[in-house]
C-alpha cells in the first residue's frame, strides 16, 4: 500500500488525497486510533497492574496512608498516560497517517 510521502506526481497525490479525505477512510482511521489506544492501554496495564493495588489499598484496606498511595498511583498513571499517548502517536505516524486503510482495519498490518 503506497504512502502519501512516496508519491511525487501531483496528479497521483491529488487522487490519493481525494480517497484519503473521504468519509469512509476517515471512519477507518478513527477505528484505527481506537484500536491503537486499546492495544497500548492494555499492554501498559499488563505491565503496571500492581500499582493499582495501591488504589485498592487506599479504598478497601488500610486508609491511614491513603494519600501516599494515591500520590504514587497518580504518578504512575501520569507516566502510563504519557507512554500511552507517545506510543499511540508513534504508531499512528508510522502505520496510519498518510496511508489508505484496508477493510481489515487493524492498524498493525
Amino acid at each position: 500500500m503506497r504512502r502519501l510521502e512516496d508519491l511525487q506526481n501531483e496528479f497521483e497525490r491529488a487522487v490519493f488525497l481525494a480517497a484519503y479525505h473521504s468519509p469512509r477512510q476517515r471512519r477507518r482511521r478513527h477505528w484505527a486510533v481506537l484500536g491503537l489506544v486499546a492495544k497500548h492501554g492494555l499492554r501498559g496495564l499488563a505491565f503496571s497492574w500492581p500499582v493499582y493495588v495501591l488504589a485498592l489499598a487506599a479504598v478497601y484496606g488500610d486508609t491511614s496512608h491513603a494519600l501516599a498511595y494515591l500520590a504514587v498511583l497518580l504518578l504512575a498513571m501520569g507516566v502510563s498516560g504519557m507512554i500511552l499517548i507517545r506510543g499511540v502517536r508513534d504508531d499512528y505516524r508510522v502505520r496510519v497517517q498518510g496511508r489508505l486503510r484496508e477493510k481489515t482495519g487493524h492498524p498493525g498490518v
Binding site: G35, A38, K39, R43, H106, P107, G108, V109
Partner: peptide, 8 residues
C-alpha cells in the same frame, strides 16, 4: 495484528 506480530 492488534497485539503486534513482528515482521522483518
Amino acid at each position: 495484528m492488534l497485539f503486534g506480530r513482528k515482521q522483518k
